[in-house]
Amino acid sequence: MLITLYSTEGCHLCEQAYRLLEEAGLQDNVDVVDIALDDALFSRYGVTIPVLSIQNHDRNVPELGWPFDTDSLKTWLTTNKLG
């Protein structure tokens, strides 16, 4: 499982989101994507980061947008059978 964290440099909320992923022991499964490097991603996530996404070819997994905490992260992972 690879979790994408849509982020950008200097985003303190994104840093908090990454720490939550670390606390959950998922840091090795996280791909941090800087939205500032892609116009389409910036247009989509520019005012909503941090956002977590999972690529799952079997089904559509909803993204988890900020604000989220440890409990909502665990719920998201469990609901999507990832945790």
Rank of each mutant, 00 (worst) to 15 (best):
L2F: 08
L2A: 07
L2R: 15
L2N: 15
I3S: 03
I3Q: 03
I3P: 03
T4M: 05
L5D: 08
L5E: 10
Y6K: 09
S7Y: 05
S7G: 02
T8L: 09
E9Q: 13
E9M: 05
E9L: 12
E9D: 14
G10I: 01
G10H: 01
G10V: 04
C11T: 03
H12K: 10
L13S: 05
C14R: 02
C14P: 05
E15G: 02
Q16T: 12
Y18R: 10
R19F: 10
L20H: 14
L20M: 13
L20G: 04
L21S: 08
L21Y: 07
E22M: 14
E22R: 13
E23V: 08
E23A: 14
G25W: 08
G25V: 01
G25Q: 07
G25N: 08
G25I: 07
Q27E: 15
Q27R: 11
Q27M: 06
Q27W: 00
N29R: 15
N29T: 09
N29G: 07
N29P: 00
D31I: 14
V32G: 02
V32M: 09
V32P: 00
V33L: 08
V33G: 02
D34W: 03
I35T: 06
I35L: 07
I35F: 10
A36P: 00
A36Y: 10
D38P: 01
D38G: 00
D38N: 15
D39S: 09
D39T: 10
L41Q: 06
L41E: 04
L41M: 10
F42T: 11
F42N: 14
S43G: 13
S43W: 05
S43F: 12
S43Y: 08
R44F: 03
R44M: 09
R44G: 00
Y45R: 04
Y45A: 04
G46D: 00
G46M: 04
G46C: 01
V47H: 11
V47M: 15
V47Y: 12
T48Q: 06
T48Y: 10
T48V: 15
I49P: 00
P50A: 09
L52T: 06
L52D: 05
L52R: 09
S53C: 09
S53F: 09
S53E: 12
I54K: 11
I54E: 04
Q55I: 10
N56F: 03
H57Q: 13
H57D: 15
D58W: 02
R59Q: 14
R59E: 15
N60M: 09
V61A: 05
V61D: 04
V61Y: 06
P62K: 10
P62N: 13
E63Y: 06
L64F: 06
G65C: 03
G65A: 13
W66V: 06
W66C: 03
P67V: 06
F68P: 03
F68N: 05
F68G: 05
F68V: 02
F68S: 02
T70S: 15
S72G: 01
L73S: 05
L73K: 05
T75A: 13
T75F: 10
T75Y: 12
T75R: 12
W76P: 01
W76L: 01
L77S: 01
T78M: 11
T78N: 15
T79F: 03
T79S: 12
N80P: 02
L82D: 00
G83F: 13
